[in-house]
């Protein structure tokens, strides 16, 4: 009995001490982590959005379950951005941040998260590939050439660009439907 008690005591004490250490570490790093994640996201936003002078991550609104980040210059909307994902990739979902300017054209695309094959599919996060989307305004044409669109696939990797095109196309359609008035479309 005494021996069992000793075991219980030891494991409890070790767990309690570790718990305290973890709590302290969490408290100390919480703000820095939140800041780093925000900086990360802001860097992405400034990459895909047209110039702005507000904090788009604070000027965000929820539309039909999707968060849209609004860029403004002197209070006038200059663009919109939203995160869309596509499951058509080779290695699970690809998360893409898509920006659109006030005319309804794609102003920039950034890949936030993907698990595509290094050396093949992961070229989707390269500037050469993502630059192709800039200025496009027709959601129906944003697809790889194999699917009747205008986006170049890579040799050896069709699925990754297809997934990105899919996400961009749906994001653009969504944002145009919600922010661009009929006569402008």
């Amino acid at each position: 009995m005494n021996k069992q008690l000793k075991i219980i005591l030891a494991v409890t004490a070790v767990s309690a001490i570790c718990g305290l250490i973890l709590g302290a570490a969490y408290n100390q790093t919480r703000e820095a982590i939140a800041e780093a994640e925000r900086a990360d996201f802001l860097a992405g936003l400034s990459e895909v959005l047209p110039p702005y002078d507000n904090d788009p991550d604070k000027d965000a609104r929820e539309i039909k379950g999707t968060t849209v980040y609004e860029a403004k210059i002197k209070g006038k909307p200059s663009g919109y951005a939203a995160v869309f994902s596509s499951g058509k990739g080779y290695g699970g979902h690809i998360y893409v941040l898509v920006g659109m300017d006030a005319e309804g054209k794609v102003s920039g695309v950034a890949v936030l998260k993907h698990k595509e094959t290094p050396g093949l599919g992961d070229k989707i996060s390269g500037k050469d590939f993502l630059g192709v989307f800039k200025g496009l305004s027709e959601p129906g044409l944003i697809a790889v050439k194999k699917d009747g669109g205008i986006i170049d696939q890579f040799s050896g990797a069709t699925m990754s660009p297809r997934a990105v095109a899919d996400a961009v196309s749906r994001a653009l359609e969504f944002m145009r439907d919600n922010f661009i008035s009929e006569e402008k479309r």
């Binding site: 250490i21 973890l22 570490a25 969490y26 790093t29 820095a32 982590i33 780093a36």
Partner: peptide, 10 residues
Amino acid sequence: TVVDLYMNAY
């Protein structure tokens, strides 16, 4: 976990 947290932060 401590290493994980500090790495994520800094």
